[in-house]
Simulated assay, not measured.
Amino acid sequence: MTDWGSVADWVSASATVAALLAASYAARVAYRQLRVLEDQEEYRQRAEKIRDASRVAVWVRIDAMSALPELRYVNASGMPIYDLVLWVATPEQTFTIVYVVDGPSAESKTMVRGTDDLQRQICESTYRPGWTQLLESGHLVCAAAFRDSVNRRWFRDFHGRLSEVEEQEDVGTRFAAHRVARFPRDSDTDGSRHPGPAG
């Protein structure tokens, strides 16, 4: 006759199996919670990393007085930015403006010296488009690259999207790729680069 064990043995075995199942379930719950915490920490670190850079923006509009493009900017980070390069692009032409440093500005305002440099480059060229029509049709756009106060490099594209620039990457190459994507069938003539302080 087969010995199936005593009732106590069955109870003990059942309790062991239940304990193993409970431990397995608890481990799965703990793992999921850990993943959530890791994701939250990664998001927090990312948000902290881009906090200052995300508060910097540059765009182009048409100056009502001169009917030429005007650069506007805001730097609400409270910290200066460095090595600021601005590209004002149309399907036929790109104008490049370089700043050594640009101080904080919580309110949006005209980038005076950058606008002066841009308009000087335009006046020295033979390029005479309808600027308002270009802007309204999305064919007058601005991109920017800069370093933040902790020496990270950033690129803000024609759509205003911000991305970090790898240390070995050339920002001019990144701009060129975005320009080709924006104006795929058009050639480009670069404007000259003139360093200067913020306006």
Rank of each mutant, 00 (worst) to 15 (best):
D117C: 14
T96W: 03
S77A: 11
G78R: 02
W131H: 01
A22D: 06
N75I: 05
S6F: 07
G114S: 03
W131L: 02
A15G: 15
T126G: 15
A89Y: 03
S108N: 10
L134W: 04
M1H: 11
E136I: 00
R61C: 04
H139D: 15
W59T: 12
N75H: 03
S6A: 10
L134K: 03
Y73Q: 04
R147M: 10
V17N: 06
V112F: 06
V56C: 10
S66W: 08
Q168T: 13
D170A: 14
T96L: 00
P91V: 02
E167H: 07
E42Q: 07
W131E: 01
R179K: 10
A181N: 09
S105T: 04
R61N: 06
R193G: 01
A64F: 07
T126Q: 14
D3V: 01
H194S: 08
A181K: 13
D116A: 12
D170P: 02
V150Y: 05
D52S: 11
D9I: 08
G199Q: 05
L21H: 03
C142G: 01
A8D: 15
Y73S: 04
A176L: 11
S105G: 07
D83P: 00
A143I: 00
R128E: 08
P197Q: 00
A53I: 01
D190C: 04
P129C: 05
A67Y: 12
S163P: 01
E166P: 07
W10I: 10
L86T: 06
F146S: 00
D117V: 12
L140Q: 08
Y25M: 11
L135A: 11
I122P: 05
